[in-house]
């Protein structure tokens, strides 16, 4: 069975005449070691879907399975722990803590409990090196360049060794060269560490770097493949590194 399984997920905002059906029955699966790009027009439900997968929103109906656990049924505390331990988020704005250094931003997730702090220190150094951030490790979050910030955000998402990496428009604030660089870094991390990754983007060039592209329109996944195929559609054949 796939690592991540969505079964007939719906999400409605508001009530009565104000009601918006943002998702109208989405089913999908993502494997470990696979990077999926989620594309679609504005307002189609991409962010809503990503928020549900990441445990930031509860679906109106449907099941969201990680292994055999249904995240849709989690209470607030379980969702918080799920976000901490199993879902690594990279947001559109990198959202680093501005007054902490790159390294401290990584170590911060160790303060949320349930982690071996010494192991996290080692891991932070590994990730900084892996993402080419060793020289920036001591820089404050607000002194880093846009590309560095996004790479720190990727490292932060990987710190607690989650099963899933969820990414929302990671390149929106970057030019295409830097954007490509960030997505490459993400893809290497996902493949190298055997994570399941869902990346929302409206940029087909970036989407093409994923293993698979899913298109969503009006709250429904489209059966056909989008116009542009991935450059390297082969699924992950990299050895799981852990």
């Amino acid at each position: 069975m796939s690592l991540l399984n969505l079964r007939d997920i719906t999400k409605s905002y508001g009530e009565g005449a104000q009601r918006v059906d943002a998702l109208r029955g989405v089913s999908m699966a993502v494997e470990a070691g696979e990077m999926v790009a989620l594309v679609g027009p504005s307002g189609s439900g991409k962010s809503t879907l990503l928020a549900i997968i990441g445990g930031l929103l509860s679906p109106t109906s449907g099941a969201m399975l990680i292994g055999d656990r249904d995240v849709a049924r989690f209470d607030a505390r379980q969702r918080s722990q799920y976000r901490r331990d199993q879902a690594g988020f990279v947001f559109q704005a990198s959202n680093l803590v501005p007054f902490l250094t790159a390294r401290e931003n990584l170590l911060l997730v160790g303060e949320f409990g349930g982690a071996d702090r010494a192991a996290l220190r080692k891991r932070a150094d590994e990730l900084l090196e892996e993402l080419g951030l060793t020289d920036a490790a001591g820089q404050a979050g607000n002194r880093l360049s846009g590309g560095q910030r996004q790479r720190v955000a990727i490292a932060r998402a990987l710190m607690r060794d989650p099963l899933l990496i969820l990414v929302d428009e990671p390149t929106a604030s970057l030019d295409s060269k830097r954007g490509a660089h960030v997505v490459e870094a993400l893809r290497d991390a996902v493949h190298g560490r055997h994570k399941a990754c869902v990346m929302v983007t409206h940029d087909l060039e970036m989407a093409a770097r994923a293993d698979r592209i899913l298109e969503i329109r009006d709250g429904l996944l489209q059966a056909h493949e989008p116009a542009m195929q991935p450059a390297s559609p082969a699924p992950c054949i990299v050895d799981p590194c852990e």
Binding site: G54, L56, R77, S80, Q81, R83, R84, D85, G88, F89, F91, N95, V97, L108, V109, E111, F112, G113, R156, A157, R160
Partner: peptide
Amino acid sequence: VLKAIGASGLY
């Protein structure tokens, strides 16, 4: 953001 990446309200 901190909450989204796993900090509890209590923390």
